[in-house]
Amino acid sequence: MTSASFHRSRMLAPLLLLGLLACKKESGTTAPITPTNPTTPATTFTNPLLGNTAGPDPWVYQKDGTYYYMATTGNNVTIRKTAKMSELGSSPSYPVWSPLATGDNSRDVWAPELHYLDGKWYIYYTAGPGNCCDGQKSWVLENSNPDPTRGGWVEKGRIISPGADYWAIDGTVAEINGQRYYIWSGQSGPIGNNTDNEQRLYISAMRNPWTLDGARTELSRPTLSWERNGYPKVNEAPQILQRDGKTFLIYSASHCSSDDYALGQLTLTGTNPLDAASWTKLQTPVFTKSAASRAYGPGHNGFFKSKDGTQDWIIYHANNDPGQGCGGARKPRMQQFTWNADGSPNFGSPVAIGTPITRPAGE
């Protein structure tokens, strides 16, 4: 989530309806018939997860044994609901919110994220009035129903950074040391006044799920060579990953039009997340393209645990072929990742499409 950037193609995410045809043979007897080839439950799955269905900016939230999946559709906010992530492709989908025909959040609906906060559901998404290179901002929806696919979603308005109400996309919510923060990708000033049009990562404390508290802090900008492929230069799609008291911020860098769109990492090495000096930036990417695996521009990821809670998984989008850029060719993929001896995540390399992958533990 896009990968959310200036020049993204508007995309739709058509749902593929799969018909299951059953054949019944009259046997002329009431005796049970033992099949000669009994069906064995599948133990593997393959990427991409949704076949030919587009899925840029995938996001997963898990609660009470259920996984909720979201991705950019371009024209609405849709939730897929499943008990098993390996069966995402056959899960039902629920369009839960659509914008009005006109208005400040009527077009280019990108990178939705679902969060359960203070006993209610919230969806953070990006949208604008129709010019993605100028008006994109962060917005919030609220739902008090225990099931986010039911009930009504109320528009809580925009997430506004005090004194810096500029272009803002890819917002996520993180809790660090008991404090809630909002982290997003934005610009240093108003569109037209920037000479670089860079996308940078910002953080702010949250007063409540729809209000920021205090000025923003810039955490990262695209300064390294691997972050500066394509135009404009991009740091976006921040995601927080925590384990054993360590906090990592995984982000996407380079423009989505580039096959070299990749993941980078910041580590919280200080005590104050609002102090840029408390974060240390890794100088090399942590997840990159693989021509052999047909994974181009892998990024804009999310994280989730396996059904039994013993495994860590990354979900991300990638193009199957080079030069496919920012459009609907980006499809969701997932794979297990491990941890290095120093406690940092090890994402490995993208698994080749069509390769059988053992289902998440517990499925």
Rank of each mutant, 00 (worst) to 15 (best):
G264M: 01
T284N: 05
V234F: 03
L274F: 08
G103A: 04
G163E: 03
A31Y: 10
P232M: 04
Y251K: 03
Y251M: 07
T73S: 13
S5E: 11
I176W: 06
D244Q: 14
W313L: 05
Q283K: 15
G55E: 03
L100R: 10
A13T: 15
A237Q: 00
I33W: 12
L274S: 07
Q283R: 09
G163R: 02
Y125W: 03
Y116G: 01
R158L: 07
L263A: 09
P162D: 01
Y182V: 01
K63A: 04
N145P: 03
P360H: 02
L274I: 12
E218Y: 02
G264N: 01
D170R: 04
H255Y: 15
A318D: 02
N301H: 10
A168Y: 00
Q199I: 05
R216S: 12
D342W: 14
A277D: 13
P58E: 00
G51T: 06
Q187H: 13
Q242L: 07
T29F: 12
G152M: 09
Q199T: 06
A31S: 09
A111Q: 08
E218F: 04
G119N: 02
I240D: 02
V140C: 07
R207P: 07
I315A: 02
G264A: 03
D196S: 14
Q335S: 09
N229I: 06
S349V: 10
T126W: 05
R330M: 04
L224Y: 12
T211Q: 02
G128Y: 12
Y231T: 15
G214F: 04
A4V: 13
D64W: 05
G151V: 11
S93K: 03
S188A: 08
L21W: 15
Q324F: 05
V77K: 05
S344H: 08
G362D: 10
Q136D: 10
I315L: 06
P345A: 03
Q199K: 12
P298I: 14
W153A: 05
P345W: 01
N52A: 13
R228I: 09
V234A: 07
D321N: 07
Y69V: 11
S290K: 00
R10M: 15
N76K: 12
T34S: 13
I123R: 09
K305M: 12
T284W: 06
D308W: 14
R80E: 07
D118S: 10
E236L: 04
L21Q: 15
W139L: 12
V154K: 08
D165W: 03
H7S: 15
S225Q: 14
G186T: 06
P190I: 02
Y316T: 09
P273Q: 09
P190F: 08
Y316I: 05
S349N: 10
I176E: 07
C133M: 05
A262R: 01
V351W: 08
D260P: 01
L100N: 15
T73K: 07
R10K: 15
Y166D: 04
G327V: 06
T102W: 04
T149G: 08
